[in-house]
């Protein structure tokens, strides 16, 4: 394996180790320190790898460098808040961290030139879905957290699975990219792109309602069906008796 690949693997392993220790469980004294430390080191390694994939710094102009730096900052924010969202012991804190992840992700999307999507992410995900999560949390867990938030199923196995998955994905990407398998599309010059235009919204609208009109209508119908379904599910269950105790699996 080449150097880069070794570093990738090391970064992944460290990151997994860190996450494993950070997952909510009965932590030992060492774990409290090791966990976040390992994750940070892993992130540092990922960050170290990033410039090696950059161009020769001397040749590019400053806008590119600035762009790269902004990208890595945003990526760091996103990944850190994602890790935090996963490992928090209070579900409300998880939701808040997830909101930060969404912000970071929206910024990344904006960086890609997907302006509408960035705003849509914030409006729909962070604004609607996340708030609904918080509603349900407040309704069902008024004290904010419970005993089952402090335990995990299989922390080691989950961490290993995640690590292997990330490793395979990045390895696949790295191999195919550095091996020169990705066909260089000549039209990737930014100026000739459809997306990076000033009337981005108008073009997106035209594309959606032009080429994907039926899909849009179907999506709308799907939304309505989901609405009806959600109401039907909750309305159906209201006819039964209330169950005070936990663990009941019969008709409630």
């Amino acid at each position: 394996m080449s150097d880069n690949q070794t570093l990738f693997a090391a970064a992944t392993v460290l990151g997994a180790l860190g996450l494993w220790q950070m997952l909510p469980r009965a932590r030992s004294g060492i774990g409290r320190v090791v966990g976040p430390l390992a994750s940070l080191v892993s992130l540092g390694l990922f960050g170290y790898l990033a410039p090696r994939l950059m161009l020769d710094l001397n040749q590019s102009d400053t806008s590119m460098i600035a762009g790269q730096v902004i990208f890595w900052l945003l990526a760091a924010v996103t990944v850190i808040s994602a890790a935090a969202a996963v490992t928090m012991r209070s579900p409300v804190y998880s939701a808040i961290w997830f909101a930060l992840t969404l912000l970071g992700s929206a910024a990344l999307l904006m960086f890609q030139g997907a302006q509408f999507l960035a705003v849509a992410t914030i409006v729909v995900y962070a604004g609607a879905i996340l708030v609904t999560f918080l509603f349900v949390l407040m309704l069902a867990q008024p004290e904010g957290q419970s005993h089952y938030d402090r335990v995990c199923w299989e922390p080691l196995l989950s961490a290993c699975t995640g690590a292997v998955l990330i490793g395979i994905l990045t390895l696949a990407m790295h191999t195919s990219f550095t091996g020169g398998d990705v066909p260089v599309v000549a039209s990737t010059a930014a100026e000739s792109s459809d997306i990076l235009t000033t009337d981005h919204m108008a073009r997106l609208g035209a594309e959606l309602f032009g080429r994907h009109l039926i899909a849009v209508e179907v999506a709308g119908t799907l939304l309505m069906v989901a609405l009806v379904g959600a109401i039907a599910i909750t309305a159906h269950g209201r006819t039964g008796r209330r169950k005070e105790t936990a663990g009941g699996r019969r008709d409630g």
């Binding site: 199923w153 699975t161 998955l165």
Partner: peptide
């Protein structure tokens, strides 16, 4: 009967196929 274990199974198979494809 635990959902996460089923998810484990599907992810393992997914990884197997990824590795095989690679």
């Amino acid at each position: 009967g635990i959902v996460q274990y089923y998810a484990f199974a599907s992810i393992f198979v997914l990884m197997f196929f990824l590795v095989a494809a690679l």
